[in-house]
Amino acid sequence: MIKVLPRNIVRFIVLILAQILIFNNIQFSGYINPYIYVLFILLVPFETPKWMLLVSALLLGLTIDIFSDTLGMHSIATVFMAFIRPYVLNIISPRDGYESGTFPRVSYYGLAWFTRYASILILAHHFVLFYIEIFRFGNFFSTFFRVIFSTIFSLGFIILSQFFVYRH
């Protein structure tokens, strides 16, 4: 358990680097941007204090913003995502709750649970992010498709990463 904090810090840095150096340069048909850095928020331990969650979300968002020159946008989306995470966890909690000493991961709660959990939060994040970026509700559906497709891609990368990086 003591290794949790350094591990999260390392994950924080690695995810940011991966996002900035690799995924920010990926644009499928100039339309779909995967944002995998949200994985950090997804994987934060259940017991993390809520304020800590928000602070780390703000830090994460700000860092991404600074490197992609979109000051504010990612911060808004990420803080929002961190804000709704406890409620989402509540809604989709397994019948007998979350066991202590476990993490919100595929290996603990299964692929189906993780997919549901991740898709809700990623969708929320992307929804906020893209609408803040476009900053109007005209062409609502054009933006909405971007949200959906980007969510699918981000989700795909994140789930894939679960199998590559965190094997049993």
């Binding site: 809520k50 304020w51 928000l54 602070v55 979300a57 703000l58 968002g61 700000l62 913003d65 979109t70 000051l71 504010g72 946008m73 911060s75 808004i76 803080v79 929002f80 961190a82 804000f83 406890p86 803040i132 900053f135």
Partner: peptide, 25 residues
Amino acid sequence: HHFIILFILFETIAFFLLFQYNTFH
């Protein structure tokens, strides 16, 4: 209510940054 207060505070900061540093917004 520290969670909601903090959330609102952070979002305010983020929005402030958004409007301050993005010409379009």
